[in-house]
């Protein structure tokens, strides 16, 4: 009954996970085109193997496929992220404050690109996609503790880089 081969189920799995698969690959390699391809490839594979993959396993199956796709194949590029900050753009803040904010973001951008790929992916999955450590651990196939370690190191490295320590 609840089978990924059913179009309804498949579509809902797609709607629930495609964006995160896209982001996941994007955080890793900084390449939007490859991230789009990864989504397509991962879901085609899921569809082809729909009879073998239980719906509750579909998620980790997708990340495994997407991850294996570019394993060691492509070189990481710069990750470019936007900021949702409409409040600042139209605020009455002083030019000095806005300038400082801009500089801070530039520093953050650079610091994020300097992070090791696994720390950046963990950090951004949490900050942008709101994924819990346990969910990230499942995606990456490691323990929750390993994810906490990555998160801790990411925060430490980002702060040190931004503050120039």
């Amino acid at each position: 009954m609840n089978n990924v081969c059913e179009e309804q189920v498949f579509s809902s799995v797609f709607k629930a996970n495609s964006k995160t698969v896209f982001n996941y690959i994007y955080y890793k390699f900084g390449n939007e085109e490859k991230a789009h391809d990864a989504v397509q490839e991962a879901f085609v594979k899921l569809w082809e193997n729909c009879a073998k993959v239980a719906p509750e396993k579909a998620k980790s199956y997708l990340y495994t496929v997407a991850n294996n796709l570019y394993l060691n194949v492509i070189k990481a590029e710069k990750v470019r992220l936007k900021y949702a900050s409409p409040s600042l753009e139209h605020s009455n803040e002083s030019p000095e404050f806005l300038m400082e904010e801009k500089q801070y973001k530039e520093k953050l951008d650079k610091a994020l690109n300097d992070l090791p790929e696994n720390q950046r992916t963990t950090f951004l999955l949490n900050r942008i996609d709101g994924k819990k450590y346990a969910e990230i651990a499942e995606m990456e196939g490691v323990s929750v503790k390993a994810i906490e370690k990555r998160m801790h190191l990411a925060l430490k490295a980002l702060r040190e880089q931004i503050d120039g320590i």
Partner: peptide, 18 residues
Amino acid sequence: SGRLEAPEFDVDQALMQL
């Protein structure tokens, strides 16, 4: 970092393409 956003991704369009 809570205000960061990933590049745009159109779920419906991607599903249609698939």
